[in-house]
Design a protein around this nucleic acid. Structure first.
Lengths: 121, 121
DNA sequence: GTATCATCTGAACATATGCTCATATACACA
DNA sequence: TGTGTATATGAGCATATGTTCAGATGATAC
């Protein structure tokens, strides 16, 4: 099998439509933003994290609340919250020994609305 | 270790904040919609598929164009396009032996805009 | 200081995912 | 019909991911 980058062995379509490919390259997102975007969507692409964010869109919750709600260990929830924190999807406030988590901004809710429109129509 | 659902062995927070958990359960998305939502976001959460969708947001492209653009085999691209098709994120039109893919609706672009706002701010 | 609570972290494991290879299908034209 | 092109599909494999377990960290009350 030829290498994917070896244009000589590709289908004729490649040559005919080379301009289309060049256009896509010109307008492509920078690699870094592509990776960041993928990270955000991937974070939303897991049912557990999705439920966490959906719950936090309604009310702030602490780790053990979320664990009870999700019927998961607090450890599992904590791992997921770290990921969501790193992507600035959630933030927390400390109240004594308890950390209350909330959505960090309104973007998550907007993403939910748009994606729900898509699957419902 | 206690079962995650065994409330008696959970932290006191669980008892104090039981109302919060009950509220989250009441307002939770149906399981089916949660799964569909996660599938859509997961589809967007891979750099390859993200690049495909970003490219198609600009112009329709055939499989071999996308393979050349991504420097991947046509087989790999075809596998990903099938997933995107099943989620109605892309659609295609046939022109002789060539299938031209495009975005199926405007939701993907709106999701991109919102997520870009998030990572850029 | 010690004890306790809530949360966090790292390692390990089972499962899921994306790619490649080989093969099959669908279409166009002779 | 037969040949060539473009795309699709299924199996296999290496890597990534989500959860659990065990233990560590940080804050609070005594």
């Amino acid at each position: 099998m030829a290498s994917p980058t070896d244009s000589a062995d590709r289908c004729r379509c490649r040559i005919i439509h080379a301009e289309r490919v060049a256009g896509a390259r010109r307008k492509a997102l920078p690699e870094k933003e592509t990776a960041q975007l993928a990270q955000v969507f991937k974070a939303l692409g897991d049912p557990t994290r999705l439920k966490v964010l959906w719950a936090l869109a309604n009310d702030e919750m602490c780790v053990c609340d979320l664990a009870a709600f999700l019927e998961l260990t607090e450890s599992a929830v904590s791992h997921q919250l770290r990921l969501l924190r790193q992507l600035r999807l959630v933030a927390n406030r400390r109240c004594g020994p308890v950390l209350y988590y909330r959505l960090d901004d309104a973007h998550v809710q907007r993403l939910f609305r748009t994606a729900l429109e898509h699957i419902r129509e």
